[in-house]
Each structure stands twice: as C-alpha cells, then as structure tokens.
Amino acid sequence: MSSILLAIVLGAAFGAVLDRVGASNPNLINRMLNLTDLRLAKAILLAIGTGSALMFAGQMLGVVDVGHMSVKTAYAGVFLGGLMLGAGWAASGYCPGTGVVALASGRKDALFFVAGGLLGAAAYMLSYPAWKASGLLDKIAGGAVTLGTVPGSEYEGLTALPGDILGVVLGFGFVALAFALPERLVGQGRPHPAPAE
C-alpha cells in the first residue's frame, strides 16, 4: 500500500512539474525542436544533470541504493524507435508522458494523441514477434550497460571507468551545457518575451 501512496505523490509531482516547466505545452516543445527557443532544452539538460549528480553522489555516500537503478538494454531498435518517436513528437508536440498531462490540462488534441498512442502501442504488441524475429531487438555493445562501471551495480560497464564518479562528472557536464546553450539557434531576437499560453 505504501508503494501506491508513493506512486500518487511522485506521479502528481511529476505531472505538476511537467506542466510548470512547459513540457506538456506543444508550443514550447516545437519552439525547442525548431531551435527558436531552447529554454525548455536548457531545463531538460539541467534536470538530467541534477538528477545524475545527486543520484551518483548519493550512491557514493551510501544514501542511495544502487539496486534502484534500472538500465534498459541497447539494441538497434532503440535507435529506430527513437527516430519514430522523434518524428511523432515533433508533429504532435507530445510524447507519452506529456501527452497524458496535456490531456488532463484540457487540451483536446491531446485526447487524439493518447487515443492514437493506445492504438500504436496495440499495433506494436501485435507485431512484436516479427520484430523479435528480425534480430533488431538483439542486444548490442553489451546490452544493458552503463558508460562506466558502477560499483555494486548489477549492470556491466561499457568501459572500466568508475561509473559513479563518471556519473557525477557527466551530471555537472549536463548542467554546464544547460547554461552554455544559447536561448535560440535559429532566428533573431529574444524568444517570446511573453510566453503564449
């Protein structure tokens, strides 16, 4: 039961932050993706960096359980699926998580996105045996690996570098990138001083 309580608290916090950061707003997603307003990209980079540095530093201090890590397998289909998701993300302005938050925030187009998503997921469930047989789901580069070798982790490292220290360093790298990235790469002027809602 306590896990359900955690799901409610953490899920609600995630949904609220996605709304406040603007990730469930298709205007901000496409201003990021068409490179005219990168402030959302800066927020995402800062988030990845903050999460990474805190998690790995916490592991080194012994306050974060290494067993809570969940590393996904690398295979060719990850890239192919990423391409598909990217194209649909740009066209619709939604990804799976932000689509459900947008639906809850009253966006009517998000209802169509979620309906299409349920159908797309069902189509994959039916076509899964063909993908499995194609070999594109076979692991590459060791499969479920981290870039360095994380002490005490069940996952192997792509390199022998100390994975926890590497995680903290990369975390700071993402934070630095967030600050270094300009607010826009395409077009001129300050992007959208009064954000449209």
């Binding site: 993300w89 066209a91 990804c95 689509g99 187009d109 169509f112 996105f113 979620v114 797309g120």
Partner: peptide
C-alpha cells in the same frame, strides 16, 4: 495528433522506452 500518437507509442515500444524512461 492521432497519427503522431500512433507513431510515438509504436516507436517508444520498439525502443523499449520514451522520453522519460529512456
């Protein structure tokens, strides 16, 4: 939006995760 949703979730399941998970 509907077609985008279809492609996004088909792709996410093929990849084994989406923007948040992967």
């Amino acid at each position: 939006a509907f077609l985008g949703g279809f492609v996004v979730l088909y792709g996410a399941r093929l990849a084994g995760g989406c923007t948040s998970g992967h």
